[in-house]
Design a protein around this nucleic acid. Structure first.
Lengths: 193, 193, 193, 193
DNA sequence: AATGAATGAGGGTTCATTCAT
DNA sequence: GATGAATGAACCCTCATTCAT
């Protein structure tokens, strides 16, 4: 009973992810989702309040996953250098191994970013806090953590975007060393000119 | 005659930009666009083949504008340092002064990036060629221009995104110095450890 | 469930027949059809892929009905004279008792004749085979079955057309004797001068 | 001046005939007609009151042409046998040499038959009067001229239809002898059994 | 819990027609 | 006389959602 319900929900979840990424949220009909999931049209509404609810839960889930992965990477590292290395690598792996989830977050952020909380479930907040901590601890020279985290994120995010649009060969992780070096440079070598 | 047609077309163009950014392309109806432009619904189809055609032409126009602005900034600078400075500043100004155009390109890139040519009308190509030239001329140490241009772009792009989502205070240009320094670092100080 | 769906489909079918004959297919809107059938506009599309699909299925149905009626009339007769009599009478009855169906086939044949198969579901083929058989069996003098069936059909078809346009008084069947005599003459008395 | 106007009108007339036959009246837009005629959209309304007016004038013209051709054939013949021969042949020639005009009359009769007058401009009336005269003069045995003319017309009309739908090989005139014989039989040999 | 027929508002688009130039 | 930009009603169709089964 319970098990079957969960199975249906997961089917809807996974199928929706695929279709949303493939065609866009608006261009994907609930009919397509339910057919691809092998259930009746009405069944979607036993698991989600609306199509938007499904799309939002999907975003929340995968966006939160990214945040918690980064958070875990941070917690498992003992110094700041290691934090940079492990979070960058973790980020690359997320893109490489769960490209659908990543793409979905990217393309739907315009719709949902307004709804996410500014807490540890938000990858942007996680990165911000990593850098804030580093400044506080003196691991890196002082600076505006917002600007710094934006730039650091961009160093990995933009190649990730290119990778998803096939502008970059190979896995993203295969380029991780470059990202780590760059992030390290912009965080630690400022003002040395 | 000619003049009137151009006026109508521009009204549709500008109104569509505003609405598309505000609500998304799919969520904006042709009725809304034409009403806001002060013309009949059918008029849209005397200027564009379809709503998608309008959206695409809008993208093409503004995306091309970004490319040509960057290209101009590059051409007007005499050495590589200056190129970095002027292109970064130019980029910031585009975001600050034409935020709608910029936002529109960001949110619709998933729909249209597949259609843009890989030429000088593509900002990504412009940045790539800037870096490729710098490597060729020995201005910066050798490296994969794709990765380097992705990272350099990310350093400005991600803050721009944050700025548009109000995660960053002040104009983007007010932070330009940080971006210039960061881009300079990752391009010139690699491998020095 | 099943029953309800069938009821709805039949309502759409019958209402469409009436409206299509009355105003023409193009001049009949889906709104009119569904309103007259007492269902919502979208419901039409749960039963037919498109308005054209509805129009075509309608044609296929009634055109096939004519063919099978003629075929039955032929099979139930024991000699050729009887075949002529019963098919002509059957044809007249179809026009008299199902004038809508007949009219619909007439006015929409320009759209759909290209799609019908050349088999026993096609009245023209049925008549052709009746005459072909008669020639083969020696019931009538040899001749081009295409020309003969065209003329025989015309002898009944044109009066039917006149009848539907009120150029002819009384039921078509009341004139059946004349058609039978004429068909018999052109099929059997050729070449006697 | 005058000449140019006539030229434009003829272009519209001929182009409309072609398009109407090809795609149907409703499915042909005024835009298509004017573009194919090489004039501006508005120009159509300097020559015709509306699209329907154009379609009707087109029907009136070609339908009247058929009538006057048949009438001429009748007038040029000296006895009834010759009348049958020349009208049938004339009919065949019309179909063979002006198939577009003929097709157009066939497919649009459902729309326009209600508007035609019952006079010498109507082919049906011409045929009816030919047969009525023959009865009056004793050329053929008495009978209902409506039924007789319907059957006689059908004998040529149905093969003509088949010819236009490619169900018949060769020109229609090449089969004229069969039609003449058949018409002659049904008109003169009735009641001989 | 699941079904799927029905809903009806709203979508993008077409079209015959008008009128200022 | 001819133009063609503008019109706006009407078109066919899709869609997220509901509810009786």
């Amino acid at each position: 009973m319970q098990e079957r319900k969960i199975k249906t929900r997961n089917a809807l979840f996974n199928v929706a992810l695929e279709l949303f990424v493939d065609k866009g949220i608006d261009a994907t009909s609930t009919k397509e989702i339910t057919r691809a999931a092998g259930v009746a049209e009405g069944t979607l509404y036993r698991h989600f309040n609306s199509k938007d609810d499904l799309a939002w839960k999907l975003f929340e889930h995968h966006y939160g996953n990214i945040a918690s992965s980064l958070l875990k990477a941070k917690r498992q590292s003992s110094d700041f250098r290691e934090t940079v290395e492990s979070t960058v690598v973790e980020f690359c792996r997320l893109v490489d191994y769960a490209p659908l989830a990543f793409r979905y977050c990217m393309l739907s952020q315009h719709d949902f970013l307004g709804r996410v909380a500014d807490d540890d479930g938000n990858p942007v907040v996680v990165i911000h806090s990593i850098i804030q901590d580093a400044i506080r601890k003196g691991d890196i020279p002082p600076g505006d953590p917002k600007i710094l985290s934006a730039m650091a994120l961009g160093i990995v995010m933009q190649p990730a975007t290119f990778s998803l649009y096939n502008r970059l060969e190979g896995s993203l992780e295969s380029h991780a060393d470059h990202f780590i070096e760059a992030v390290w440079l912009i965080l630690t070598k400022r003002g040395e000119s």
